[in-house]
Each structure stands twice: as C-alpha cells, then as structure tokens.
C-alpha cells in the first residue's frame, strides 16, 4: 500500500465520488434523524430543534421499553431455535464428502437470495386458517375419524371434529418466520468454524473413550465457540430490527420495535419520537457489533500463538 500523498491527484479523483455519495445520501440523512431525535413536535408539520431529551425519556416509558424488551425476546428465541436447527446441519455439511459439501451449502444459502417479502408471503400460505398446514391436519383428522369408524368409534367420538388452528397472526408465527429467514445466517458461521476444527482432536476424544455426546460438549462446542458467538450475533441483529416479518405474520400484540418506528413515521406522524426510537435501535445494533468485534479479536489472538 502506498501513501496517498504520492499520487494525490489520482487519490482525489477516485475518492471524491463515493465519499460524496456516502456523505450526501447516507451520513446527512442519518444526521437529520439524529437531530430530529433531540427535537420537539410543535405543530402538525413543524418540528423545532431544542436539544432536549424528552423523546428519549418517552422511549424509556414502560410501554416502549416493553416493546424493546419484546423485540429482544423474540430475536433471542429466534436465535436459539436457529442455533439448535443449524448445528446438526452445519455438522452434516462439514463432514460431507467434498463433492456434496458445496451443493449442501448452496442449498442452505439459496433461499436467502429469494426476496424476503416473497418468503414471508409463502409462509402466510402455509400458516393461514385454510393454509397448507391446517389442510394437512384436517386431512389427517378426517381420515383418522374414518378409520376409527370401522371399530365403531367414528363420528368424532375420539378425534375431531377438526377445528383450524390459529397459526397465523401471533408471536409464534413471527418467531417461525424469523427462523425461516435467518437460518442461513447461523449455518454459515457455524460451518466456517467447524470446518477449521482439527479432526484429530475428535478422533483422540473418541479413542480415549468419550462418547459422541461427550465429545460434542467437551471438544466441538468449546473449539467452535467463536463461530457460535459470531452466528448468534449475526442472527440476532437483523432479527431484532426486522420489520416485514412481524408486520405480515404478527398479530396486534406482536409489534416489534421496527414496526413502532415505522408507525411513528407514517400513521402517528411523530417524527422526533420515531427518530429517537430508531437511534436507540441503532445503538443496540452497534453494541452487538462491538461485542462481535471483541470476540473476533480474541479469536485472532488465539490463532497467533
């Protein structure tokens, strides 16, 4: 790498356009929101900047604190389910034959390239009252009933009549949807860290008499810990800030923080308050990223020695 001053003209020619774009169309808009978060709504459209903290104070009221808390819980539940599902998948990919490995990875990542909105819509068709899942259950119930009628237990004496389960528009549906869209985020870091794992440790552990479960908890998990932490944070961050999934799959009580921000900017038309909420969400994101950076650095140091 060379010092910029050695060919200053080329440096400035190259750096000007992207820097302008980043500042004018990203930093300035964000700064505007930041300024709004210290402002006050004084009329229908008037907003005056008076550097007060009342928007933040309002954001810390129990109602909004509760929504923040709920977003964290939902994101944490999503991350936990993803971890449990992704771990066996990552192990299967790592220990697959090299020719199969790329295909398995591709299969896991491919849905990630499909539009988020469309994937969420596909889940609506699965979960709604007369969706695939309820129709499947209905078919099972009706046929069980039919089979039972041969032994005189038909006509809904034991099973049925079938009632559609309310699978959509609740918190479980939101977590289901979030797991559906964030699974690749968990599989990839787990795969990366398991792939680097020295297999002779596993062989040694198995040779010395530990079972597979013991080997998993005493060898695999500690060695893959940086990857696990990375996966947890990478899954958690987008899940906490997600807007579309709770909006389409959630009920009236499954609003997450992004939905509240959106409604402050659209329906409620209280931009300063929405601005304060969105900066709180951003600070939470930065906090999570900082944890990840610290973990990554300690992992790097571990490799060096």
């Amino acid at each position: 790498m060379e010092n910029w001053a050695k060919s200053a003209r080329a440096f400035w020619t190259a750096i000007t356009a992207p820097t302008f774009w980043l500042i004018a169309f990203f930093i300035v808009p964000l700064s505007l929101v930041w300024l709004y978060s210290f402002s006050d709504k004084t009329g229908v459209t008037e907003i005056t900047l008076d550097w007060n903290l009342q928007q933040y104070a309002r954001a810390l009221e129990p109602l909004y604190l509760g929504i923040f808390w709920k977003s964290i819980i939902m994101a944490a539940a999503t991350t936990a389910v993803c971890l449990v599902v992704a771990f066996p998948v990552a192990i299967a990919i790592v220990f697959a034959k090299p020719s199969q490995r790329m295909w398995l990875l591709l299969l896991v990542v491919l849905p990630f390239w499909t539009n988020l909105l469309i994937r969420t819509y596909a889940l609506i068709a699965v979960l709604r009252t007369n969706g695939f899942l309820n129709s499947g259950l209905e078919w099972i119930v009706v046929n069980c009933d039919w089979l039972l009628s041969f032994v005189g237990l038909g006509d809904n004496t034991i099973v049925g009549p079938f009632e559609a389960l309310p699978l959509l528009y609740n918190n479980v549906a939101v977590i289901f949807g979030l797991v559906y869209v964030s699974l690749p985020f968990m599989v990839l870091p787990l795969y990366a860290s398991l792939d680097r794992l020295d297999r002779s440790y596993l062989e040694a552990s198995l040779d010395l008499g530990a079972g597979h479960v013991r080997t998993f908890y005493s060898i695999v998990v500690p060695l893959a810990l940086p990857g696990i932490a990375s996966g947890i944070i990478i899954t958690f961050i987008p899940a906490m800030g997600s807007y579309l999934t709770p909006d389409l799959l959630g009920g009236t009580d499954s609003q997450m923080i992004a939905n509240v921000i959106a409604s402050q900017f659209k329906q409620a038309n209280n931009w300063p308050f929405g601005a304060a909420l969105s900066f709180l969400l951003m600070y939470a994101t930065f906090f999570a990223l900082a944890i990840r950076a610290v973990l990554m650095r300690s992992e790097g140091r571990g490799d060096a020695k």
Partner: peptide
C-alpha cells in the same frame, strides 16, 4: 450494510 433497514428507510424518508 450493518444498520437496520428500517433506520435507513426512515432516514431516506426524512431526508
């Protein structure tokens, strides 16, 4: 790349 989409969305709207 890292900030939540919703934050960028409202920033653009305000801008």
């Amino acid at each position: 790349i890292v900030i939540p989409e919703i934050c960028m969305g409202v920033a653009m709207m305000v801008f």
